[in-house]
C-alpha cells in the first residue's frame, strides 16, 4: 500500500480539501475522485523527489488554487444531478404506487362482486342443495380467492419496493 502520510503538508492539505468537497456525493463518485487525486499527488511528489520538478509545495498549492473554481462547479453539478435523480425517482415511485393501488383495487372489486354473487346464488341454491354440495362449492371458491388475493397483495408490495432512488448515480 502507498504511504501518503509521509508526504509534505501541502499534499495532506489538498487531500483534505478533496475529502471536504466530495462529502455527501455518491460513494462511487467520491471514492473515484479521491483515488484519482491521491494517485496524481503521489506521482507529483515522486517527480519532485527525483528533482525533475522542484518546489513541490508551491506547485501543489498553485494547482489546488487554480483548480478551486472547477472543484466547486464539479461538486455543484453532481449535487444538482443527484437532486434531479431523486425527484425523478420519487415521481416514478408515486406512479408505481398509483398503478399498484389501482390494480389491487380492481382485483378486490372483481373478487368482492364475485363473492357477493356467489353468496346470493349459494343461498338460493342452498335451499335446494345438500350441505355436502354447498361445502364443496365453498372450498372451490376459497381456492380461487386465496391465491388471487395473495398475488394482488404481493404485487402491490413488489411495486412499492421497486424504488429507483436506491440506484446509485454514476
Amino acid at each position: 500500500m502507498s504511504d501518503m502520510s509521509a508526504m509534505p503538508r501541502s499534499v495532506g492539505f489538498v487531500r483534505a480539501w478533496v475529502r471536504l468537497y466530495t462529502v455527501g456525493l455518491p460513494t462511487g463518485l467520491r471514492e473515484a475522485r479521491r483515488d484519482e487525486i491521491d494517485a496524481d499527488l503521489w506521482e507529483q511528489s515522486r517527480e519532485a523527489s527525483m528533482d525533475i520538478a522542484p518546489s513541490l509545495t508551491s506547485h501543489v498549492l498553485a494547482r489546488w488554487l487554480l483548480g478551486l473554481p472547477d472543484d466547486l462547479s464539479w461538486r455543484a453539478a453532481h449535487i444538482r444531478s443527484a437532486d434531479s435523480n431523486a425527484k425523478e425517482g420519487a415521481m416514478v415511485q408515486a406512479t408505481d404506487y398509483k398503478t399498484a393501488t389501482m390494480v389491487a383495487g380492481v382485483i378486490a372489486a372483481v373478487l368482492l362482486g364475485h363473492l357477493l354473487i356467489n353468496t346470493v346464488l349459494g343461498e338460493i341454491s342452498h335451499q335446494r342443495q345438500t350441505d355436502v354440495a354447498y361445502y364443496i362449492h365453498s372450498m372451490i371458491m376459497l381456492w380461487i380467492y386465496g391465491p388471487v388475493g395473495i398475488a394482488a397483495i404481493a404485487g402491490r408490495f413488489y411495486f412499492m419496493r421497486k424504488s429507483p432512488c436506491s440506484a446509485p448515480s454514476s
Binding site: V18, I37, D40, A62, R63, L66, G67, D70
Partner: peptide, 14 residues
C-alpha cells in the same frame, strides 16, 4: 512551468 490544476484536469477528463 505548471501542471494543469487538479480540478480543471479531472473535471475535463470526466
Amino acid at each position: 512551468r505548471l501542471l494543469t490544476a487538479y480540478g480543471t484536469l479531472y473535471k475535463a477528463l470526466e
